[in-house]
Design a protein around this nucleic acid. Structure first.
Lengths: 152, 152
DNA sequence: TTCTGATTGTTCAACGTTGAACTATTGCAT
DNA sequence: ATGCAATAGTTCAACGTTGAACAATCAGAA
């Protein structure tokens, strides 16, 4: 589990932190998916985009890319797949004709709105090994770390 | 940053935790890579395998798969790429003739041993926004969460 | 207005990733 | 010894992912 690298204390601490972060988010994700399998034919990437649209409303692709931490090229591809499946639709923005605003179709809304609560329950159950206070501490420290790392 | 899902307190807490975990590990990784770009032609996946071999010695592919949290099919592909690049070599195990033991070539060892310390420094610098105690707390909570989630 | 640089999205090559079907080998139970 | 379930690895289709090259549009300066 821990790194086998023989470096300074400081480096080993940082490496162990990174490994623990990566594995725990991976474990949490997998546990939630075990409890709430994705709808047939829906991938994790597609889910991420559908979820953003459900909770934030119609968005231009660039904004979607920022939300799900992927590149615009990637979003373009995955949105096309969602469009092929009839879950999403592209609309040219009148304000800025470069933008394509993505919005859920009724089928897409039904799919994601019907599924998401199961996933939320899955996360809640999986996170229960930590107390509410521990979860809050963990979240706070992660945010501090993330913001700090981004500004380097 | 936080979820926009309107569910129970418990669910929102778990979702926010997951988002924070994901983003912080992503930020930490990207910050480290900014400070220490991977060697030309080396991908993150290839790096992961080289690193495992450097610090754990020659390993059969199944073990590598467990270490880097990927499937055996994936390891097979990436190891082939590493073999093409002359960084790694497959050796049929005598004890169990099903196993292929992967080991670093001298070129591979030189590459990863020369690069890894830079990455370690990058992680250490990026993690410095947290005190040593905070890092330890974060690591401990992550492990507890990970172990708990795995056993569901 | 006109030029110029920045922004939005598409496309493509190369690689990564998974899960399933397949082969070879092993170990065990009978 | 024989048969059989489990294990190690390969391969493939389908999809995801990135970064770079490209076209269209916008916004601001001269």
């Amino acid at each position: 589990m821990a790194t086998h690298y023989r470096g300074s204390e400081r480096e080993q601490r940082a490496l162990n932190l990174f490994i623990a972060l990566t594995r725990s988010s991976d474990s949490l994700q997998k546990a939630a998916l075990r409890k709430a399998p994705l709808p047939e034919g829906t991938t994790l990437s597609q889910f991420g985009i559908l979820e953003a649209l459900l909770h934030l409303g119609p968005l231009p692709q660039t904004v979607v890319a920022q939300k799900v931490l992927k590149t615009k090229g990637n979003i373009s591809v995955v949105v096309s797949h969602l469009e092929d499946r009839g879950l999403v639709q592209r609309r040219r923005s009148k304000a800025d004709r470069r933008q394509l605003v993505i919005e859920l179709t009724s089928a897409g809304r039904e799919l994601i709105a019907g599924y998401f609560p199961h996933m939320a329950t899955g996360f809640a159950e999986s996170a229960q090994v930590l107390s509410a206070e521990e979860q809050a501490t963990l979240t706070t420290l992660c945010k501090k770390l993330g913001v700090g790392a981004d500004s380097l």
